[in-house]
């Protein structure tokens, strides 16, 4: 699904990622953990194509294609989905308009006709129910005036409708209370499938109580310093990050 080899990235001439290696197979859930400033968000941004980052070396191959060569929207149409840490408010563009624009862009990319208006509405309403959202949300401007939990739920709604193959979740648990965290996690779990992979970037272990990862990687100072199974997250919860950072140094 995704193969990252020796990836190095600069921001304003400062090296942030210092040689990342990661193999993600279909159906796997990988958690990327690490302290603040370790490069976690940089990794998710570079994979989704955000500007302001310079790739100085290495590669990221997604389904056999050079991911880093693609424009952000092409990555999205090819099935890469970034769930934002801070979803952006877009006044004047309704949720349902954006969903329709996004879904039809994907269909067009794959040579399919536009989705039928009735089928689309049925699909969207089904997903809205699944995430325990109010249908009124569909007609409100994207994220405008939404609470933190509503914004995250909205990200999962988009994910459920666009059906990506690789979901990159950037600090999804930040700003969520326990009820919202449960709903969001249930949403993510319902989307797990043998064909869909997840990269969960998170500072805390608590999200992993709800979404069980197959692999946990610890990012420190721009490198993956330790990889293991779900139990590694518990160890981190116990001991913090400093022992790993010392080991790496």
């Amino acid at each position: 699904m995704l193969s990252i080899k020796n990836l190095t990235v600069n921001v304003n001439d400062k090296q942030i990622l210092k040689g990342i290696n990661l193999e993600i197979k279909p159906g796997e859930i990988h958690a990327i953990m690490g302290p603040n400033g370790s490069g976690k968000s940089t990794l998710s941004h570079v994979l989704s194509g955000k500007g302001g980052y310079t790739v100085t070396g290495g590669s990221a191959t997604y389904q056999g294609k050079d991911l880093l060569e693609m424009a952000p929207e092409i990555r999205a149409r090819e099935g890469v989905f970034l769930a934002f840490q801070y979803p952006v408010e877009i006044p004047g563009v309704s949720n349902i308009y954006l969903l329709k624009a996004a879904l039809n862009s994907i269909r067009k990319h794959h040579g399919q006709p536009e989705v039928d208006a009735m089928d689309f509405l049925t699909l969207v309403k089904e997903k809205v129910r699944l995430l325990e959202m109010d249908e009124k949300f569909l007609y409100r401007a994207v994220n405008e005036g939404f609470s933190g939990g509503e914004k995250k739920r909205n990200e999962i709604l988009q994910m459920a409708i666009l059906e990506p193959k690789l979901c990159i979740m950037d600090e999804t648990d930040s700003g969520l209370d326990i009820d919202a965290l449960k709903i969001v996690s249930e949403g993510v779990n319902s989307l797990r499938s043998p064909e869909r992979s997840f990269v969960m970037v998170t500072h805390y272990q608590r999200l992993l109580d709800y979404i069980k990862p197959d692999f946990v990687h610890v990012l420190a100072n721009g490198q993956i310093v330790k990889s293991g199974g779900a139990e590694l997250a518990l160890e981190l919860e116990d001991k913090g990050y400093s022992w790993l950072e010392e080991e790496a140094a």
Binding site: G51, P72, F84, G92, V93, L98, A101, H109
Partner: peptide, 21 residues
Amino acid sequence: FYLQSRCVDEETARNMLTFAF
């Protein structure tokens, strides 16, 4: 960028935001 990450190309994203404004 948010719109691009939701499959919308840059030019369309600019038009959408201008129109929304």
